[in-house]
Design a protein around this nucleic acid. Structure first.
Lengths: 211, 211
DNA sequence: AGATTTTTTGTACGCTCTAACAAATTTTTA
DNA sequence: TAAAAATTTGTTAGAGCGTACAAAAAATCT
């Protein structure tokens, strides 16, 4: 067996896996975890049912990869914005804006993630992802605050920040009309300003990011 | 047909319905909506399977009544505290304390409600309940604020309040260790103080509730 | 009271959906 | 063209809901 076919095989396998993950993602956004059956995933991907367990151990593995995929889409947004941030305050705004992507802040996406949260209560793998997401948020915010705010205060601040963020998405799940993108951002920005106080906010605005 | 037997029938029917609803509630708190199968509900109630559709139209009706029952348990707490509130500020504290009942602020209960939120995305009856819950919260807070704060400001405040409240419960669903009861109350109290400002808070503290 | 009817309770079956697997078929590779 | 890989089709086993029906109990009637 030469290297060529082996590579080819690997390539096709990778392609199929990605196609299935993306198909699962589309269904996830449309109907949440509830709509995700093996049959529907394969159908959405334009393949026959049995193919799923050929490329994945089981359905759970697809869903797990799909959630990582879905999160990466959101996180890439944050990463790009963080790069463009000049001041430490801009970094916080980058986190806020990144967590409210124009094109994705809508009912279906919100509900999809809520269904993920609900599932995480019974699924340890999902729960671990959830913890990872939280640590990332904490780390992103801490990196903007750390020299100006002490650790304990940061922990408490992030706790409230995350709660407000999740709560806003939760409400968006009710209806697109209940809360708008700008209202969401405003609530989080105000929370941040109020929690930190004007003195620290002013300091953050004048502090460059380079360590 | 005399009135006596007819009355008797009504009574037994009501008893059985309540027994089933309470059984469903116990399972709901333990395992969320996911754990609620007809078989398990009847088993928990100490009855046989088929009984459920004799007293209810279908499973959905039991679940619907169960959610109302579950919400009433939480709301009674709020109502009692509201009665005991002397100042308008005390009414806000009553809403906060009532939404964090000592005995029920734990992982399982939180996750049960999250599973309800997830379901509401696809179930119009649940969605209507959700809206009702939100209106109640809005009304409770507005009745404490209305003379001192204008309508538009109240709407925005309640939006953030609800988001923070839901977000805190959501985090409690992750783990009992992530956030404590007192931390939760503190976050909401601080949010309220910061949003309204010390001037208004002071006014509310000195305003009696009697209209 | 004894028979008859109604109400209540318990059981069993059928239908649908789903995940996972196995066998058969097609396609690709050597 | 033979072997290997990729894909499809069909099967199996299990869970859950709802319904139909059987059994038991209670109420009513004569």
């Amino acid at each position: 067996m030469s290297a060529q076919p082996k590579k080819q095989k690997k390539r096709i396998e990778e392609i199929r896996r990605i196609e299935l993950i993306e198909a699962a993602y589309r269904i996830f956004i449309k109907d949440g975890l509830k709509g995700l059956t093996t049959t529907r995933i394969c159908q959405e991907a334009g393949m026959s049912q049995g193919i799923l367990t050929y490329y994945f151990k089981d359905k759970d593995e697809v869903l797990f990869e799909m959630v990582r995929h879905a999160n990466r889409i959101l996180m890439d947004d944050v990463v790009v914005r963080l790069r463009g941030a000049a001041s430490r305050w801009d970094r916080i705004i980058a986190v806020i804006d990144g967590n409210f992507p124009e094109s994705r802040f809508e009912r279906n996406t919100a509900n999809a993630w809520i269904s993920f949260y609900a599932e995480a209560a019974h699924n340890e793998r999902y729960a671990r992802l959830q913890r990872l997401f939280y640590r990332r948020l904490h780390s992103n915010l801490a990196s903007a605050l750390l020299p100006a705010v002490e650790r304990a205060a940061i922990d408490s601040f992030v706790l409230g920040f995350a709660a407000m963020l999740d709560g806003i998405w939760l409400r968006r799940g009710h209806s697109d009309a209940d809360i708008s993108l700008s209202q969401g951002k405003q609530l989080l920005t105000r929370y941040t300003e109020n929690s930190l106080g004007t003195a620290i906010v002013d300091r953050l605005k004048s502090m460059p990011v380079a360590g």
